Simulated scan of single mutants.
Amino acid sequence: MDSAVFSSSGVSGVPDSQPLTIALVSANDVPGWRDAHVRDLAAALGARGHDVTVHHSPLAGDDELQLGDFVDTLRSEWSGARPDVVHAHFWRAGLAALLAAQPCGVPVVQSFHGFGRRAEVERLVGKQAALVVADGEDELFALAAAGVPRSKIQVVARGVDVDLFQSHGPVAVRGELRRIVTVVDPMGDNGVADLVAALPRLPDAELVVVGTRPADADRLGRWARRLRVEDRVRLLGPVARKDLPAVLRSADVVACVPTRPSWDALPLEAMACGVPVVATAVGGLTDAVIDGVTGLLVSPRDLKQLARRLRVLLDDATLRTACGIAADDRVRARHTWPEVAAGADRLYRRLLAPPEPARRRRTGRAGVPTVDGART
C-alpha cells in the first residue's frame, strides 16, 4: 500500500479551528483523473491546516485476498494512530475503509463518484458509512432511491485544478478543420463511437480522441473506416495530465457523451479552459453543463441531435465565446479546490461535533412538564 502525507506544518492561512487528522482512502486500479482527484483534495485539506494521509492500493477486480491485505494494513495503521475521520473514494475503497475502521470506531465518509456500477455493494457501503458525499443532485437522488438514508447524504461539488486548467496558456497545434475533442475514461461509457458516427454530418470537423488504449483504438479505427471518416479521426492515445489543457484549448468544442450516468472530470476541466461543452443529459453532466449557458446538452444515443448541437456551436463563434466565458466563470465560482475543501471540512466537523444535550424537562406540582424552569 502506498501512503502519502500532506502535513499542515508551515502552511499559511491555517483556520482558527482545531486541525483534524484525516485519512483519505483510494483503492482504484486505474490511474488518471481519479488519482488526481484524491491527491488534489488532500492538498487542499492540508492547506486548510489538517494533517492528511492518503492510503492508496490498486485493488483490482474482486481479489478478496488483496482486499484482505489492504484492510489488515489500514487496521494496523489506524490502531496505532487513530485518525479523526476516514474519507473513502470509490466503492472498493469504501468497503476496505469500513472493515478497517470498525474496530477503532472511526467514522467513515464515502464518495462513490458515480453510483450504480456495483449497486448491491454500493448500497451496503452507503448504508454503513456515517456520511455519504454526492457529487451533485443526480447522484444524491440515485443514492436515496437505492435505499441510502437521505439524512446521510450531502452534496459537495467536484473540484478542478484551476492553476493547471485555465483559459490562457499554450494551445496544441491544429489544422483548418473545426475541432471536437473528447477524452476517454477507461472505466466509463464514453460514447466515442457516437461522436465518430456524427462526423459524416459534420464534413468540416475533425474528432480528436485522447486516452485511447490499443484495443479501443483498433475498434474505433475500424468504425471510422466503415463510415469513411478515418482521415478526420485522430486517436492520440494517453496524454500526460500537464499537457491536457493545451489539447483542450485547441478545441472549438469538447464533447462528453456517455449513454449512462458517469463521473467524469472532463466537462469541468474543459470549462475551466474556457471551452464550451456538448454533453449528454445524464448523471452529473446535467450539474456541470448548463444548457445554452456553458454548453449544450443532448439526449443519449440521438445521433441527429448530437450532430445538430455540435453544428450549432461549431458554426457560431459568438455563442462559443459566450459559453466559454460563462463556463470558466462557473468553474471558478463553484469548483475550485479551496471551495471544495471548505465544503468537505464543514461536513467532517458536523459529523464529529458532539450532539447538543437535550434541555432538561422538569415536572411541576400537578405533574405538568416545565421547560427551563417555566411552569406550563
Rank of each mutant, 00 (worst) to 15 (best):
A4K: 11
D16A: 15
V25I: 01
N28G: 08
G32W: 05
R48D: 14
H50K: 05
D51K: 07
V52R: 07
T53H: 03
D63W: 09
D63C: 12
Q66T: 12
L67S: 03
F70K: 04
V71W: 02
D72K: 04
E77N: 04
S79R: 11
G80V: 00
H87Q: 11
A88N: 01
F90G: 04
A93I: 01
G94E: 01
A97K: 04
L98G: 09
Q102C: 00
P103A: 02
V108G: 00
V109N: 02
Q110M: 14
S111Q: 07
F112H: 02
F115I: 00
R118E: 10
R118P: 02
R118Y: 11
V121C: 04
G126C: 04
Q128K: 09
A129T: 03
A134Y: 13
E139H: 15
A144K: 12
A144E: 15
G147R: 03
S151I: 08
K152P: 05
Q154R: 15
V156E: 05
R158M: 15
G159E: 02
V160F: 10
V162P: 02
L164G: 06
H168N: 14
R174M: 06
G175D: 11
L177P: 02
L177I: 04
V184D: 00
V184T: 09
V192F: 02
A193E: 14
V196C: 00
A198M: 04
P200V: 13
E206D: 09
V210T: 03
T212Q: 15
R219E: 09
L220M: 11
A224Q: 03
R225C: 12
L227S: 09
V229I: 10
R232F: 11
L236P: 07
K242P: 01
L244S: 03
A246G: 05
V247Y: 05
R249F: 08
S250F: 10
V257H: 03
D264S: 13
M271R: 05
V277W: 09
T280H: 08
A281F: 13
V282L: 11
G283F: 11
I290G: 07
I290Y: 14
L297D: 09
D302F: 00
K304T: 14
D316F: 03
C323F: 13
C323N: 12
I325A: 14
R332M: 03
W337E: 03
P338S: 12
V340S: 01
L351T: 04
L352F: 05
T363D: 05
A366C: 06
G373K: 05
